[in-house]
């Protein structure tokens, strides 16, 4: 405990020292209070996260018959089956390209927009609200709005193209355009959240750095590459981690927007496990997919923890 005493904030340390000088009975005794205060959160966590994780691992070794409520132990069969399941492979691949396009777009986009808006006070104030609105909308509302916008023939984009005498685009019914639509919708949905983080990061940069650079005759792009980007490093790391979390969990909006289609062009891993478990009623098989993805999720969670640690949160 000695190391945590050293890092304790000053008032806490004072109280601790005083308690040592006048040891009250309560201070030295074992106390139930903190454990009782933690009980609701830890209880929910145990019931709805920890236990399901362990139970899920056990489930993945079985073939469960949902209708009759029976289960048969099949060992690693579900996992072996996954290795030869082209649908699962495709959904992994889809998740990969989706993540690899969404994350860089969000990163570059949020930095570009934040840097652009920073210079204009009215726009910055407006953007705080405007860019964040898509992030507070529900997946159902986001999907409805975009489905309407991108609607083939009836939608306003195709309407405009027709009006301008251009060929219309089957936004949601062609493999490639459906993928583009899904990525664009996601980036639109999430970018405001990240832009606010970048704006906050930008406001931490000492303006004197820019003044000094200007005096030395640095151009705007030079200032961006040599001051803004390096100083934004912690923010950029956070954006990368959180956006990866967001992207790998993507499910609801896409389910409503394309249903994973056309065919399975936009079916990501979460939808695949959802359909195995609740559509084809093979929960063991669905959970096996989750367990395979879990190490990656834990890895990202661990990265985030390290970041919290660096910032002295934990």
């Amino acid at each position: 405990m000695s190391s945590s005493e050293k890092t304790a904030p000053v008032p806490a340390r004072k109280a601790y020292l005083r308690a040592r000088r006048f040891p009250s009975r309560r201070q030295t005794e074992f106390r139930w209070a903190p454990y009782l205060f933690l009980l609701p959160t830890v209880g929910m966590l145990a019931l709805f996260s920890l236990y399901p994780m362990l139970y899920g691992a056990w489930m993945s070794l079985q073939n469960m018959d949902v209708i009759h409520g029976t289960a048969r132990f099949v060992g690693p069969n579900n996992y072996l089956r996954l290795l030869h399941d082209p649908q699962f492979g495709e959904s992994l691949l889809n998740t990969a390209w989706y993540t690899l396009t969404v994350v860089p777009l969000i990163l570059a986009g949020s930095i570009a927009v934040a840097v652009f808006l920073r210079e204009s006070r009215p726009a910055r104030l407006l953007a705080r609200v405007g860019f964040y609105i898509p992030f507070v909308l529900s997946p159902v509302v986001v999907a409805t709005s975009w489905k309407w916008l991108l609607n083939e023939d009836l939608g306003v984009i195709d309407g405009f193209l027709k009006w301008a005498g251009l060929p219309t685009v089957p936004w949601l019914s062609d493999d490639f355009s459906a993928r583009v639509s899904v990525v664009v919708t996601t980036v639109w949905n999430l970018i405001g959240f990240y832009m606010l983080m970048v704006l906050a990061g930008l406001s931490q940069i000492n303006p004197e750095l820019y003044e000094a650079a200007r005096l030395e005759g640095a151009t705007a792009p030079q200032r961006f590459w040599h001051i803004t980007l390096p100083m934004l490093r912690p923010t950029i790391v956070l954006v990368l981690i959180l956006a990866t979390v967001h992207a790998t969990q993507a499910f609801e909006t896409i389910l409503l927007l394309t249903g994973g289609g056309p065919g399975s062009a936009t079916r990501l891993v979460v939808q695949n496990m959802y359909q195995a478990a609740f559509g084809r009623l093979q929960p063991g098989y669905g959970v096996a997919q989750a367990i395979l993805v879990l190490p990656f999720i834990l890895f990202v969670a661990w990265l985030q923890m390290r970041l919290f640690k660096q910032e002295g949160v934990v």
Partner: peptide
């Protein structure tokens, strides 16, 4: 608390459903 709660419900939906 921080790490376990970061695991999204999406991944655990099947066993949580059974709970």
């Amino acid at each position: 608390i921080l790490s376990v709660l970061l695991i999204p419900l999406q991944v655990l939906m099947v066993p949580v459903f059974l709970v």
